[in-house]
Design a protein around this nucleic acid. Structure first.
Length: 739
RNA sequence: AGCGGGGUAGGGUAGCCAGGACAUCCCGUCGGGCUCAUAACCCGGAGACCGGUCGUUCAAAUCGACCCCCCGCUACCA
C-alpha cells in the first residue's frame, strides 16, 4: 500500500524584517510539529514556504536603507531562512518569490485564468497627479462631496454622508500629498472576477466543517458581505510583471501573486529532487490533504482568494484545512530593550537553545485566542516545567542507572504489575499525542507528554530504586528498566516538539540511529538490554533572563523637549486639527487635535512639551513631526507646560539618560503618563497616592508623572535637564491621562 | 465608531460549538513526605459568586438578549 501523502503550506514570511516569536508561534512551529509527526508515522510530506519578497513594504524599507528592493528582499530572505533552519523547522523547500520559476508559474496561472475568462481587462479612469508623477490611490485624493457639501471627502466615499463615488464624480479633487489638482487619466488594469466563484466558494466553505470555528466564521462573514471583483495589477515596478504586451510599469498585486508561491515552491522542489513532475503527486491526487498554517490576518487569502484561484485554474487540490492561529502579543514588552532580550529569532537563538524556545512557544501557542509573551513567563515555564519536571525526570533515571548499572538493566520476573502500569501509561500518552497532533491541537499534545513525565516521576518515587538497590538489586534493575522505557517513549513522542534534545536523549539511552522518518513505532521499542549507557548530562539547563531593572528605564526611549509655539493655523482639511509651527531649538511642524480646546491665540507663544522622536506621520495630508503632550480628563484637554524658566529645546529628561530611537505612535501609546497634585516631598496624588521624588516640586501644584505600569505605586515626575518640573496649563482631575 | 477575538482562584490557562453531579492544568502560596535527581521529585490544603444583568431549562461557565471592560485590524487617535 502506498504511504499516505500530506501537503503542508506555510504562510510566507514577509522579506522586510527578521521573523520574530510571533511568526514562529503562529505559523512556523505548528506545521513543523505536524510534519515531523507525519514523517515519523511514515507518511510522505511536502512542506513548502518561502520569503514573500514583493510589494510596497519592501520598497519602503529599501528607500529607508538606501538599497534596492532586491537587495532588501534578498537580505531578509537569507536572515530568515537561516533563522528557520536554526529553529529546526524542516521544509521540503523554503524558497522566495523573486525567482524566475515563481514568475513563470504566476504567469502560467495568470494566463490560464485569462483564457478561462476569470480575468478581465478594464479601462479605468484613475486620478493621476502630474506634480507627484504618479497614479493616486483613492485615499490620496480628496474633494467636495456633491451631496452633503463636505469639503474634505475621500474620493471613493464621503465619511459624512456615506455617498460613494466613482472616479471623477467628486468636486474639486485635490492630491493630499502636494495639494495640486490631479488629472484623470485612463489606465488599464486586470480584474480577478471573484464573483465567478461565489457559489462554489459557498459550497466549499460549508463543506469544511472541520475548520476551526474562527476560520469558518471569518470566512463566512466575508462571503456574506459579498465578493467584489478585485484589480490584481497595479502601477508599480517591484513585483511580478504582467505577462502581456503593453503593460510596462505594471506588476501583479502581491496578494494575488504570493499565494501562488505554494505551487511554484512545489514545482521548484520537484525540480530539485530531479523528478520535475513529482509536485503533481501532491497537487493532483485528490486523496492528498492540504494543510495551510498561518496567522489570523491571513485567513481570507487562504480560504477565499487562493481557493478561487485554484478553482479557476482547475485540477488542483483546494486547502483541506486552514488551522489559523491567533496572535502572540507582547503586552508590556513593547519596551523590550530594557527588560529583556529582543524578540527577533536570530538574537533569541544567540541566547537560548532552539528547543527551549520551541517548548515555550508550544505551551503558550495562541491556538484559540491571543497569547501573551513575556520573558518572565518564558523563564518560569522553562525552569519549572521543562527543566524541573521533564529534564529532571530524564536525569534522575539516567544518572541513577548509569551510576549503578552502567548499562541497560534487564527485566526480571515478578514485577508484572509495575510493567502493566507503565505499559498503560505509555499507551495512553501515545494515543493522546497522536489524536491531538492529528487534530492540530499542539498544546494538548505537549500536555500529554508532560503528563507522562509526571507519571514517570510518580512511578520512580513509588518504586524507590534507591532503596531497592540495597535490598534487591535485580528488582532495582527491573524498575529502572521500566523507567527507561518511559524515558524512551518520551524521547520519541517529544521529537516533533523538541527534535534536538529528543535526539540527544536517544543517544543517552544507548540507542543508535536518528529519530525521524518512520520512527514513531519506537515509542514502544524494546530496550537494548545490556548495552552500555553513556554518562548522561542534564538535557535542559535552567535559564536566567537578564533584566535591567530600572523601573523607568523604558522612558529613556522618549525624547521630550520644551517647545515654543510660534504659529498656529487650521488644518486645511480637517475640522479638529491644527497645524503648529514650534521651535524646539529647531523649527518643526506639528499637527495637533486641539482645535476644540484651544484657540490659535491661546496657543501662540505658549511653551509646551513635544515628543520629538515620533515617527513623522501625515495626518490628513499634513506632516506632523512630533506631538504636543496634553492631558485629558473628561471633556477637558490641557497641554503640559514647564512650570518654571525653560528655553525652547531644553530636554525633559527626568534625570534619565535618553537613548536615540524613533518611536512609532503605537510604541508611544504604551507609555503611561499621568497628572497629579504634589502632596509633600515624596508623595503625590494621581487619583491614588503614589511615591515619587517630588522634593524639587512645589506642594499643591499639579505636575506630570511617568508610571512604570498601570496602577503602580511609584512614579517619576517629569522635569527638564535644568530641573524645572512640568506642569499643566490649567487644572485637571488628578490621574488625568496624558497623550 | 465599524468588523473580528476575548474576559474562568494572586498570575497564566482548559472546558464553551454537541448544557448535567465536587470547574481543568501549570506557576505561586501553605502543610507534609522523599533523599535517586538540575534546592529537583511526590502527596495534601487554602484560594473562583466562571465580567455584569436578565432570560431559556429539571439543570448554564457552557444556549439567547442587553450592558461593562480588554486586545487586533479599520478610522479626521498625534
Amino acid at each position: 500500500m502506498e504511504r499516505p501523502k500530506v501537503f503542508i503550506g506555510v504562510a510566507w514570511p514577509y522579506a522586510n524584517s527578521a521573523i520574530h516569536l510571533g511568526h514562529v508561534a503562529g505559523s512556523l512551529l505548528p506545521p513543523d510539529i505536524f510534519s515531523r509527526y507525519h514523517r515519523m508515522r511514515g507518511h510522505q510530506v511536502l512542506m513548502v514556504s518561502g520569503s514573500d519578497q514583493h510589494g510596497t513594504p519592501v520598497t519602503v524599507r529599501a528607500e529607508k536603507d538606501n538599497q534596492t528592493p532586491e537587495q532588501v528582499a534578498e537580505r531578509y530572505h537569507l536572515i530568515n531562512k537561516k533563522a528557520i533552519e536554526d529553529l529546526g523547522i524542516e521544509f521540503s523547500m523554503f524558497t522566495k518569490t523573486h525567482t524566475p520559476n515563481h514568475v513563470s508559474v504566476v504567469h502560467d496561472v495568470f494566463l490560464r485564468l485569462m483564457e478561462k475568462g476569470h480575468l478581465e481587462q478594464r479601462q479605468t479612469l484613475q486620478y493621476y497627479c502630474p506634480k507627484c508623477v504618479k497614479f493616486l490611490p483613492d485615499r490620496y485624493v480628496e474633494g467636495k462631496c456633491s451631496k452633503c457639501g463636505n469639503e474634505s471627502s475621500r474620493s471613493d466615499q464621503c465619511d459624512k454622508c456615506g455617498t460613494t463615488f466613482e472616479v471623477g464624480e467628486i468636486s474639486d479633487p485635490v492630491c493630499i500629498t502636494c495639494h495640486s489638482r490631479p488629472e484623470m487619466k485612463e489606465t488599464e488594469h486586470y480584474f480577478f472576477k471573484l464573483t465567478d466563484f461565489d457559489e462554489p466558494l459557498l459550497h466549499y466553505v460549508q463543506g469544511s466543517e472541520h475548520w476551526r470555528s474562527n476560520v469558518q466564521l471569518f470566512t463566512q462573514n466575508w462571503l456574506e458581505s459579498g465578493l467584489k471583483d478585485r484589480p490584481i495589477t497595479r502601477d508599480m515596478s517591484w513585483g511580478v510583471p504582467v505577462p502581456l504586451p503593453n503593460t510596462e510599469g505594471k506588476v501583479i498585486y502581491v496578494w494575488f501573486e504570493a499565494v501562488i508561491g505554494y505551487l511554484s515552491a512545489s514545482k521548484e522542489w520537484a525540480q530539485s529532487i530531479g523528478r520535475p513532475d513529482a509536485w503533481k503527486d501532491y497537487w493532483m491526487d485528490p486523496e492528498v490533504k492540504s494543510y495551510y498554517f498561518l496567522g489570523k490576518d491571513n485567513i481570507p487569502f487562504h480560504t477565499i482568494i487562493w481557493p478561487s484561484i485554484l478553482m479557476g485554474y482547475g485540477g488542483l487540490n483546494l486547502p483541506y484545512d486552514v488551522p489559523a492561529n491567533e496572535f502572540l502579543t507582547f503586552k508590556g514588552e513593547k519596551l523590550s530593550k530594557s527588560k529583556g532580550p529582543s524578540i527577533d529569532i536570530p538574537s533569541i537563538l544567540d541566547l537560548f537553545e532552539a528547543d527551549l524556545v520551541r517548548y515555550y512557544l508550544t505551551v503558550n501557542m495562541p491556538e484559540g485566542k491571543d497569547a501573551d509573551f513575556s520573558w518572565e513567563d518564558f523563564e518560569t515555564k522553562v525552569n519549572n516545567e521543562l527543566v524541573a519536571t521533564l529534564g529532571n525526570y530524564f536525569h534522575r533515571v539516567l544518572s541513577f542507572t548509569h551510576k549503578n548499572f552502567h548499562e541497560v538493566p534487564s527485566l526480571p520476573e515478578g514485577i508484572e504489575a509495575e510493567e502493566g502500569q507503565v505499559r498503560d501509561a505509555i499507551a495512553q500518552a501515545l494515543v493522546e499525542v497522536e489524536t491531538y497532533i492529528s487534530a492540530c491541537q499542539f498544546k494538548k499534545g505537549l500536555k500529554a507528554i508532560m503528563d507522562l513525565a509526571q507519571f514517570g516521576n510518580r512511578f520512580f518515587d513509588a518504586v524507590k530504586p534507591w532503596s531497592l538497590l540495597k535490598t534487591d538489586r535485580a528488582k532495582c534493575g527491573g524498575v529502572l528498566n521500566l523507567n527507561l522505557r518511559i524515558v524512551q517513549a518520551l524521547a520519541v513522542l517529544g521529537h516533533p516538539f523538541m527534535p534536538f534534545s529528543s535526539q540527544r536523549l536517544w543517544g543517552f539511552l544507548g540507542n543508535d540511529g536518528t529519530i525521524g522518518e518512520g520512527s514513531w513505532d519506537w515509542v514502544t521499542k524494546d530496550l537494548n538490554v545490556g548495552s552500555p549507557l553513556p554518562e548522561p548530562k542534564p538535557l535542559f539547563k535552567k535559564v536566567e533572563i537578564d533584566r535591567e531593572e530600572s523601573l523607568f528605564a523604558a522612558y529613556e526611549a522618549l525624547d521630550l523637549r520644551v517647545g515654543l509655539v510660534e504659529e498656529v493655523c487650521d488644518h486645511p482639511n480637517a475640522d479638529k486639527l491644527m497645524v503648529l509651527k514650534v521651535d524646539i531649538g529647531r523649527p518643526i511642524q506639528l499637527v495637533a487635535g486641539l482645535k476644540n480646546y484651544y484657540t490659535k491665540e491661546q496657543l501662540t507663544g505658549k511653551k509646551v512639551v513635544v515628543i520629538t522622536n515620533l515617527q513623522p506621520a501625515k495626518l490628513r495630508g499634513v506632516e506632523s513631526q512630533g506631538m504636543v503632550l496634553a492631558a485629558e480628563s473628561g471633556d477637558l484637554v490641557k497641554v503640559l507646560t514647564p512650570s518654571g524658566p525653560a528655553e525652547p529645546g531644553d530636554r525633559v529628561t527626568s534625570g534619565l539618560s535618553p537613548i536615540s530611537k524613533v518611536l512609532t505612535f503605537q510604541e508611544f501609546q504604551a507609555f503611561i503618563l499621568r497628572v497629579g497634585t504634589v502632596l509633600n516631598d515624596q508623595e503625590a496624588d494621581l487619583g491614588h497616592v503614589i511615591k515619587a521624588d517630588t522634593s524639587s516640586l512645589t506642594k499643591g501644584t499639579q505636575a506630570a508623572f511617568f508610571l512604570p505600569k498601570e496602577g503602580a505605586e511609584t512614579a517619576l515626575p517629569l522635569f527638564t535637564e535644568k530641573k524645572v518640573s512640568i506642569g499643566v496649563d490649567g487644572e485637571l482631575d488628578n490621574g488625568a491621562k496624558v497623550r
